[in-house]
């Protein structure tokens, strides 16, 4: 059976690894105060951090969202 891949995902993985190395070498300070287009998500994340709680029940992790 002939199958085609429309993307070379191994290459994309390598590229992601290469970019990670480049970003790792860039100082965090370079990005501070830079405008990004994720403000709505950031607000949601901050809200999530306030309502998310986890606890252990009989040795099992459980998650609880308190609004």
């Amino acid at each position: 059976m002939k199958k085609l891949f429309t993307q070379d995902y191994s290459r994309l993985e390598k590229e992601a690894g290469r970019l990670l190395e480049i970003y790792e070498r860039m100082p965090d300070e370079y990005f501070v105060n830079q405008k990004s287009s994720v403000e709505l998500i950031v607000r949601k994340l901050k809200g999530f951090a306030r309502v998310y709680n986890n606890y252990s029940l009989n040795g099992t992790d459980a998650e609880i969202i308190i609004n």
Binding site: L19, L20, Y23, M26, D28, Y30, F31, V32, Q34, K35, S36, S37, V38, V42, L45, K46
Partner: peptide, 12 residues
């Protein structure tokens, strides 16, 4: 922490 690192993470 989110505000400090959001631009770098999203850019990557």
């Amino acid at each position: 922490l989110i505000d400090r690192h959001k631009a770098k993470v999203f850019s990557y």
